[in-house]
Design a protein around this nucleic acid. Structure first.
Lengths: 240, 240
DNA sequence: CATTGTGAAACAGTTCACAGCT
DNA sequence: AGCTGTGAACTGTTTCACAATG
């Protein structure tokens, strides 16, 4: 599930029963549970069963219980889970009890959208820097911040304790930004540029790629419509 | 890997050797291979080995070969794959040889970013409608289109043959938009709103969720820094 | 003879079904 | 009585390693 060669790298020794390792698939769902729980908390629900929480999160209840069991035994048999307590435990597990300074590099349409995205700041994350290479954009005020020039990347990261960088630059600039960011000690990157970033082991890159998502949808859509790709159609290109 | 309960639903009969079913994990990587191949094609590379293509796509070569083997035997032993031919085959498999009309609902910062996103139009996808509920935004010209009012949703879908809808509305509006879109016959949805959409079987929803990606990164970041969540810290909230 | 295509093995994730606890 | 936590079975995915082959 992590994007490229940079797998989590929490190599457990073969014999150990995975001391505190939580499966990737589980980690990827914890935020979903957290969101569902926050919804329940807003509606002043005190306790929830695995069945109800599973429905709210859109998964099945056995999976939910198995996932939560990796964090510890936080439920009460015959009763369910205490909503507030579970929110706390999942937040702590995800590292959301501290707050993370995030820098966004590339303040185009997407970067702007990200900077203004509310759910961002809400839980654990704080946009601590906006950077762009275009002098036209530098100096703009967005989401209460002033856009700085990309030249400041290293100093912004160092001075503001940035530990997560969001790359929202054009594809051509992404690898260079990535390299500089890593050289500054950042090891968590969220990449929106449509390129495969090459990074050393120990650096975590997650990728969000609109066109890949659309292509996956197109694949399924085509199956629904045609029952599969158009066959019998002959290849018209030149084969060397 | 598909978002919620709406799994692909191409139930193969137990005995059949999966006539044309391509594993989800493979489908999710085909766009990656396609992008890598397009890069090679631009540099006029005619032929590529599984090893080289794998490096370009950021996967390992055994996986790449297994993936491609699901499409057919398009390589040449001792030689590699013909770049153009493979581009064609993958495009066809993904349904990119036809073009898909896409409507974007919600023209806030994100919707605007998506509408202006180039890679969108490039291969197989055409933005055929932009809709928003805010009268302030309706009428704006974005990416060569005029923003229409959400009331027109059904008629835009019908008249322009929209088969994929991108939901970029606030969370609160997403489910209602989703329901209307499905009622209009659309079965492929890309959801950017931070909610779990409830959809009938046969509808494909893919979700892109910024804050979930950040939370996953935070989890790994925390592990790197602390070696895990802060333990020993006692729960301070009120447990019922 | 370099490289593909693929069985078989290893691994990861999901689901079942129920023992065990409150 | 009801719901959690979890072994065990199952399903899907990745990796290995090598026979087949242009």
């Amino acid at each position: 599930m992590p994007p490229q060669e940079c797998r989590p790298v929490i190599r457990r020794t073969p014999q150990q029963p995975r001391e505190r390792g939580i499966p990737d698939a589980t980690v990827a769902r914890l935020p979903l549970y957290l969101r569902a729980l926050n919804g329940l908390a807003e509606r002043a629900v005190a306790t929830v069963s695995s069945e109800d929480l599973a429905v709210a999160a859109g998964v099945n209840s056995a999976k939910l219980r198995k996932d939560l069991s990796h964090l510890g035994s936080y439920g009460t048999r015959g009763v369910g889970y205490d909503v507030q307590y579970l929110i706390y435990q999942i937040s702590r597990e995800l590292g959301l009890t501290q707050d993370w300074a995030v820098a966004i590099v590339g303040v185009g349409n997407l970067g702007r959208a990200l900077a203004n995205y509310g759910g961002f700041v809400s839980r654990g994350f704080r946009v601590a820097g906006l950077l762009d290479a275009d002098p036209e954009v530098v100096g703009d005020h967005i989401a209460g911040l002033v856009v700085e020039h990309s030249d400041e990347l290293e100093s912004v990261i160092a001075k503001r304790g940035v530990s997560i960088v969001v790359i929202a630059t054009p594809a051509t600039a992404a690898q260079a930004v990535c390299d500089r960011v890593i050289a500054s000690g950042v090891t968590s990157i969220l990449n929106f540029a449509p390129v495969v970033l090459t990074v050393p082991a120990g650096v975590d890159v997650r990728k969000v790629d609109l066109s890949i998502e659309l292509q996956i949808l197109a694949f399924h859509e085509q199956r629904k419509v045609n029952g599969g790709p158009v066959m019998g159609e002959e290849w018209a290109g030149e084969v060397s």
